[in-house]
Write a protein that binds this DNA or RNA. Structure first.
Length: 436
DNA sequence: GCGATCAGCT
DNA sequence: CACAGCTGATCGC
């Protein structure tokens, strides 16, 4: 078997060290309590939460990286077989608690793996992150950027979380006699809940496991599991549906709030007309616009930057609160990093767009990648695979073959996208073997 | 009986 | 359709 060096959010065999960006399930596929493949690096907060998600995990394998500090790791070069040093820095990704990006320097060059991230233009933590990253890169150049391309399409435009949190507070305040349920996951959106609790001076109900996580994160006296103490409840997103809200309304007047970067969130019932806001069908309709119309739509979106609260259903509001960067923020990030090449880390079953399509022109001048980018734009679909292959450090043949089997080329959104025909979203992770 | 994986669903 | 995640069935051990 070919020997590897480093894996990020990938847990198959063959690497000497492994890095975890954050604890969401789509980044930990393959990780388990019985893990024994090698040292696992993560942030301090992730390490603190780790035993909760993976009880029995051999903690001697966990390595905490302090944010903003360079760490040296001794590895064996997969190309020469001799000892080599890799330097790595973790930087706050501001996605969910503990989420970090990793900047690597080694014989393979300099690479940045963002994991999932959100850096709003005016956010303090993002500003600290930007200057930290800028200083860490210094005069070096980033050879390859692995980018959170979740919302890598101009149609994804939404306000900062600060603005969206205010929208949520407004919705709650305008329903003084209603119970409120907010759909959240097992990690993330804490800042939103803290904002609500502080401004409206109320506790927030969470389910028991979530309360434990809140306590691990250091939030005491704000959350409760006693239903009588508050009218605002944060509930698991999977338990949040139109059916649930209709059921709750038999007992008490209740509204649901869905914080999401996506314009559709709750699966409509069969036959539901979706008369409120941007429905799945209207999004599809918009998606069929030509590339030119798409770009026009995106300019319009820029002007209205703050997408508003939408009433999705009689009892359900969606608020554009996202823990992923919107299109403009991704673009600013790429301009900051100026990588020589880049690759998206998210392959969505619906709208995967290679970041090179929109941001190829922002790359540091590099003949090979410029040529690839040009081919990509000229020939479209056929060359997508070529760009994918050339721009990746991935070398897991079986995984690649699997991807090819499951991938077909489509022409959605007026751009050539690689459409994955399976239903699940795929997080790629990265395995670094050698310089491309 | 247990963990890993997958289908189905939200 | 899915930002992320649950439940239950099945399979190999």
């Amino acid at each position: 078997m070919e020997k590897g060096m480093i894996s990020v959010d990938r847990w198959s065999e063959g690497s000497q060290v492994y890095f975890l960006t954050h604890l969401h399930a789509d980044h930990t596929n393959g990780l388990s309590s019985t893990w024994k493949r090698g040292p696992l690096f993560c942030s301090r907060i992730t390490a603190k939460l780790f035993p909760f998600k993976f009880p029995g995990f051999k903690l001697s394998l966990l390595r905490v990286l302090e944010i903003g500090q360079w760490h040296s790791i001794s590895l064996v070069s997969p190309t020469t077989g001799s000892d080599t040093t890799v330097n790595v820095m973790a930087i706050d990704a501001h996605h969910c608690p503990g989420a970090v990006m990793y900047l690597f320097r080694g014989e393979f060059g300099c690479m940045l793996y963002t994991g999932d991230f959100r850096w709003e233009p005016t956010n303090t933590r993002a500003q600290i992150g930007r200057s930290m990253l800028h200083n860490a890169i210094g005069n070096d150049k980033v050879d390859i950027l692995y980018l959170d391309n979740t919302y890598c399409n101009p149609s994804y435009s939404f306000p900062s979380r600060e603005v969206a949190a205010k929208q949520v507070v407004d919705v709650i305040a305008s329903h003084p006699d209603h119970d409120i349920v907010i759909g959240i996951d097992s990690l993330g959106k804490e800042d939103l809940l803290l904002h609500i609790a502080r401004v409206l001076k109320m506790k927030i109900w969470v389910w028991p496991e979530r309360l434990q996580i809140m306590h691990l994160l250091g939030f005491h006296d704000i959350f409760t599991t006693k239903i009588s103490q508050t009218r605002v409840r944060a509930v698991p997103r999977y338990s949040f549906s139109i059916d649930t809200l209709e059921g709750l309304n038999i007992m008490r007047p209740t509204i649901g709030i869905m914080p999401s970067g996506l314009p559709w969130v709750v699966r409509p019932l069969a036959g539901n007309n979706n008369i409120f806001g941007l429905s799945p069908s209207s999004f599809h309709h918009r998606s069929k616009l030509s590339a030119k119309a798409q770009r026009f739509a995106c300019i319009q979106n820029l002007n209205e930057d703050s997408r508003a609260v939408e009433k999705y259903h009689e009892y359900i509001y969606t608020v554009p609160y996202s823990d992923h960067s919107c299109f403009e923020e991704i673009k600013e990030f790429v301009k900051l990093v100026q990588p020589t090449n880049m690759k998206g880390i998210v392959a969505s079953s619906f709208s995967y767009v290679d970041p090179l399509y929109y941001f190829g022109h922002l790359l540091r001048v590099n003949l090979q990648s410029k040529r690839l980018s040009k081919n990509f734009e000229r020939k479209g679909g056929e060359s997508v695979e070529a760009v994918h292959t050339k721009s990746t450090l991935e070398n897991d043949r079986s995984a690649e073959a699997r991807m090819k089997r499951k991938t077909r080329e489509g022409d959605l959104l007026g751009v050539h996208v690689s459409r994955v025909s399976i239903l699940r979203r795929i997080r790629c992770g990265a395995k670094i073997l050698e310089l491309d």
